[in-house]
Design a protein around this nucleic acid. Structure first.
Length: 939
RNA sequence: GCGGGCGUGGUGAAAUUGGUAGACACGCUAGACUUAGGAUCUAGUGCCUCACGGUGUGAAGGUUCGAGUCCUUUCGCCCGCACCA
């Protein structure tokens, strides 16, 4: 019988589905193991071959763990809120829910055909009200919490209120936004509702505030820095401006230190930990307050080098700094306002990326040096960012290169405060030089001086030591339709949470998915979007009366809201009483293995750790870190193909003939090119893409048009996407699974290339053949296996076990090939060997394994059959083929008994005539013998 | 600029603690077979050389009996962060 992979795969996929083979039980006596993939965003383009790479690896691991006797949770779902579906809705008028559902259907079909062992009964979709009900619930929990710095945890805001009522805020030590003035319990009681709420929102873990944002008028939305490329929106390429806006923020900064500390507890790749560490950006230094000459204001700065304070010769404020308008002199007003305006047009990333051009304006105001009392000019400059530190810098040109460049450019004073250091050409950032010209810290090194300056600042109450983090609070509002609605309504402009028992607050229907004409978010188009506090229902906007019926929040939550806790939902995905039942949560606890791309390092993987720590603090989850181990799979790159169009003409020149012609390279669909880079000319002419090209002419080499190749990210716009469907159809899912693993190390980025696929497909056919006679009937011998056969089996078991432990799936595929090649050579078709071999291969190629398992006469699925156990006794050797090397170069091999000791080996080797031949009469100076390894003769 | 990673045949890549470099595949060459099959099988294949032999893991040094692996310098590529005070 031939290997009809399509039939076999369809049969077993149906079997798994019918029998719910991979449904995980929440209450098992088996040890649990939770294998998680980063869930996909269901885009309209469908799955491409890059998606399954991580999924195949995690599936192999999950299946392996089932064979090893674990109760495995291996779920999958969809991160189904997001901008592409909304953009599509804007263009076509189709409801995003509809297109999302269609896309999910395609994804599901594609995932199913690869044979993943997902427990689909736990599927989650972030856009489903039954899911986002709990996203809204978590948001409310955050709103109702503050961060207590004494106990270092989130606590109920009610506790804080009762403290305010009994003793004011004097003794409160909590994470807080603005520096608040002290108030007593009496004062608190006298504050009106509005004032109280304003104070509380400084403590809440999610709060409304005016934030400077990247506003994209064309998309009508705020963009994250990482969504902006070269000052334009990543999607669409529209201009972006800086704008102030009232937005929800998440007080992730309260967790900065714990997010750093937690990294020590988890087995995540070091580069990923490094990027989270950099993102959080802890720096130790001091806050210093500078008085402003002639104003009743002061400038707070954070510095990591308080020891250089006597080197301050000017100050620089971010152009957006709130003091700028207050302190600017009459003569400077025009210049300053012009500069502020021109800065507002530049994106933050743009400003940061531009290192070469130096710009700034003098404000006309002077600060007073806190120790020397000298007057220091205050400048504004766009190299200072409002969002980092206090948005102000004490400039020390002799000790900081950027300050130095600024001072040189504007011909400002550069006082030298370092002993025996030449600063005429560049600043000195070395912390080991001694300080000079600095009053009470002369002669000290940086470390000593820092301590002394901080002490002096604290004594005079003009500053204190401080740990500063680069991490900022995360903006949580999006001006989009296709996201979670906030469970929030407004009473006189003050936010109120909807009682959790009335969740979910479902997305309203709208006529248009664009922002409204007057610049409100898309939900501003909804006509039934008001909250009735009497009936606790969403009602028509017409009924808003300001007494019982109020407007609802128009923003929606960002993409990362739903993905920040989904791993908990899988544990108890259908629970309608709570976001995850306690019993299920205490059984599954955390993810044992998480596989996904490193591009989420400072987004999803940081926010989700933050939410998990918060949920832990409030007693909702049992662990602080939700993923014990994480593996980043490398990106699969596409190999783009290019044709070369002669500039201004419809002439395409084959790659080898371009020579000196001016050509324009154009992407061409990779499906039109064969393995030898030859273009299908007829296909090219008929391809939709090229319909607009009239009568193309081709200049051929040897009768062929040869395309250029380049490795790029796999993307629809580069026409280099390869769809797994074709491979599943032509070679089968088992071949696809093996091939993706065989491509190379999991964590390494690699270009997709189908050239080698026949190799693994051939392997599966040879495996099949081992079980079949020449006339293709199933034929397995019941004879006892011999030593050679057992050795092949056990060496493979050993290798595969080690490989899986190291996530080295590429080399285990090789081991399978070697085993099958060797068994084929021995014509071995013995059950003793083949039955364990099938189990060994089952996690990698589950369909063929199930089929052969059944043909071997077994009942039921192979998926929980015990994995073969390695027995060292089958690998014991009595001899070793020693490499005999001379001066480190291997010349010949000699088989010797492993019982021989060093002396005996040396004797045997020296007696060998080939040794004498190599030595050619010389006597060896030294003979190195490592029993069991090598012999090296020196001389 | 800072941080991280990577350089091995025509190609994808192997190579626990330093111990036979190139496993396993693709491709290529030659051949066999045929019931033309998504064929299969056999042999060969790092480079130079008819061969003996030489040479070879980006380059140059070093440590060592022995280096792809350790150390120093250097070149190139990729990724992340970036005027972070």
């Amino acid at each position: 019988m031939k290997y009809y992979f399509n039939e076999i795969e369809a049969k077993w996929q149906k079997y798994w589905n019918d029998n719910q083979t991979f449904k995980a039980d929440n209450y098992s006596k088996k040890e649990k193991y939770y294998v998680l993939d980063m869930f996909p965003y269901p885009s309209g383009a469908g799955l491409h071959v890059g998606h399954p790479l991580g999924y195949i690896a995690s599936d192999i691991y999950a299946r392996y763990k089932r064979h090893k006797g674990f109760n495995v949770l291996h779920p999958q779902g969809y991160d189904s809120f997001g901008l592409p579906a909304e953009q599509y809705a804007i263009q076509t008028g189709q409801h995003p829910a509809k297109t999302t559902q269609e896309n999910i259907k395609t994804y599901r079909r594609q995932l199913d055909q690869i044979g993943f062992s997902f427990d689909w009964s736990r599927e989650v979709r972030t856009s489903d009200p039954s899911y986002y009900k709990w996203t809204q619930w978590i948001f409310i929990q955050l709103y109702e919490s503050y961060y207590c710095l004494d106990s270092d945890q989130a606590r109920s805001i009610e506790e804080l209120k009762s403290v305010f009522e009994t003793e004011g805020n004097i003794r409160i030590n909590a994470a807080c936004g603005d520096t608040l003035e002290d108030f007593s319990e009496e004062q608190w009681k006298l504050f009106n509702e509005e004032k109280k709420e304003e104070i509380l929102s400084n403590y809440r873990l999610t709060y409304l505030s005016e934030t400077e944002v990247n506003w994209c008028p064309a998309l009508g939305t705020v963009l994250a820095n990482d969504e902006i490329v070269n000052g334009l929106s990543e999607r669409g390429g529209f201009p972006v401006v800086r704008k102030k806006m009232k937005q929800w923020s998440m007080r992730i900064t309260a967790y900065a230190q714990r997010l750093l500390d937690g990294l020590n507890e988890i087995d995540w790749p070091q580069p990923l930990k490094d990027s989270q560490t950099n993102w959080i950006g802890r720096s130790v230094g001091a806050m210093v307050s500078f008085d402003i000459d002639g104003h009743n204001e002061n400038i707070e700065v954070f510095t990591t080098r308080p020891d250089t304070i006597f080197g301050v010769s000017f100050m620089t404020l971010a152009p957006e700094h709130e003091l700028v308008s207050k302190i600017t002199g009459r003569d400077q007003k025009e210049a300053v306002e012009g500069y502020v305006l021109s800065t507002s047009k530049r994106s933050e990333r743009d400003r940061m990326a531009d290192v070469k051009s130096i710009s700034g304006v003098f404000t006309g105001a002077y600060a007073i040096h806190p120790f020397s009392g000298t007057k220091i000019p205050i400048w504004i400059g766009d190299y200072v960012l409002a969002s980092y530190g206090t948005g102000a810098v004490m400039a020390v040109p002799c000790g900081d290169q950027r300050d130095f460049d600024f001072a040189k450019y504007f011909k400002l004073e550069i006082p030298n405060i370092f002993e025996n250091v030449d600063i005429s050409e560049m600043a000195c950032e070395d912390k080991n030089v001694k300080i000079a010209n600095s009053d009470f810290i002369n002669g000290l090194n940086a470390k000593e001086a820092i301590r002394k300056v901080i002490a002096a600042l604290e004594e005079r109450k003009i500053g204190q030591g401080k740990i500063n983090y680069r991490l900022r609070d995360a903006v949580f509002s999006r001006q989009r339709y296709w996201g979670e609605p906030f469970p929030v309504y407004y009473v006189n402009g003050l936010p109120k949470m909807i009682d959790t028992e009335y969740l979910p607050i479902t997305l309203p229907e709208v006529q248009k998915y664009l922002p409204t004409e007057d610049g409100k978010p898309p939900l501003g188009n909804a006509t039934v979007w008001a909250w009735c506090t009497k009936t606790n229902q969403i009602v028509s906007n017409d009924l808003i009366n300001g007494t019982t019926i109020f407007p609802l929040e128009l923003n929606t939550m960002p993409g990362w809201a739903g993905s920040s806790w989904y791993f908990n939902r899988y544990m108890d995905a259908t629970n309608s009483e709570t976001f995850c039942g306690k019993e299920a949560m205490n059984y599954w606890r955390d993810v044992d293995l998480y596989i996904g791309g490193s591009e989420h390092a400072t987004g999803h993987l940081l926010y989700s750790r933050f939410w998990q720590k918060f949920l832990y603090d409030r007693g909702h989850v049992p662990v602080q870190e939700y993923a014990k181990k994480l593996i980043n799979q490398g990106m699969i790159l596409g190999t783009s193909a290019f044709v070369y169009r002669k500039e201004g003409e419809n002439v395409f020149i084959s790659k080898g003939l371009i020579g000196d012609f001016k050509v324009q390279p154009l992407h061409v669909d990779v499906s039109l090119v064969n393995a030898s880079n030859e273009l299908d000319l007829e296909g090219f002419k008929n391809h939709v893409l090229n319909k607009d090209i009239d009568q193309p002419e081709f200049i051929l080499e040897s009768g062929k048009y040869i395309v250029g190749r380049e490795v790029e990210k796999m993307s629809k716009s580069k026409y280099n996407v390869v769809n797994p469907d074709d491979i599943c159809h032509n070679y089968g899912a088992d071949t696809l699974r093996l091939y993706e693993m065989f491509l190379g190390p999991l964590e390494q980025a690699k270009p997709w290339n189908t050239a080698g696929i026949s190799g693994v497909h051939g392997f599966l056919k040879r495996l099949w053949k081992l079980f079949h006679s020449d006339n293709e009937a199933f034929l397995v011998s019941e004879d006892k296996a011999n030593a050679d056969e057992l050795k092949i089996l056990h060496k493979t078991i050993k290798k595969v076990d080690e490989d899986i432990a190291n996530f080295s799936f590429n080399t285990s595929v090789s081991s399978f090939m070697i085993a099958v090649n060797e068994l084929t050579a021995l014509k071995c078709n013995k059950r003793d060997i083949l039955q364990p071999l099938v189990v060994l291969i089952a996690p990698y190629a589950p369909h063929i394994a199930e089929e052969l398992w059944e043909k071997l006469g077994n009942k039921g699925s192979i998926s929980t059959v015990e994995y073969p156990v390695f027995e060292p006794k089958f690998l014991i050797e009595s001899t070793k083929t020693y490499p005999i090397s001379f001066n480190g170069k291997m010349r010949f091999t000699k088989e010797l008994s492993l019982d021989l000791d060093k002396v005996a080996i040396e004797k045997a080797v020296l007696e060998d005539e080939r040794t004498q031949q190599q030595l050619n009469g010389r006597s060896p100076k030294k003979v190195i013998v490592i029993p069991g390894k090598i012999v090296n003769i020196v001389g």
